[in-house]
């Protein structure tokens, strides 16, 4: 059994690059979807209720 440590790395040497890439992609998808939803689907959907807040 290979229960012995093969290689020991420190806290900052652990670099989950795949996870970083996935989360970056997920972040970009969120940004693009938000821009699309607000500026295209919502603001572009005239007639829009306008007025002064209050």
């Amino acid at each position: 059994m290979s229960s012995e440590l093969e290689r020991e790395i420190g806290h900052d040497e652990f670099d989950p690059k795949g996870t970083l890439a996935l989360i970056t992609i997920y972040f970009l998808i969120l940004v693009v979807l938000w821009i699309f939803m607000y500026f295209v689907e919502f603001v572009g959907n005239d007639l829009t209720v306008v007025g002064v807040i209050g």
């Binding site: 938000w34 607000y38 603001v43 829009t48 209720v49 306008v50 007025g51 002064v52 807040i53």
Partner: peptide, 15 residues
Amino acid sequence: LTITYGAVGLGIAMI
């Protein structure tokens, strides 16, 4: 910021 821009910049209001 987007919602603030919508309310202040575009003048979108609530009923």
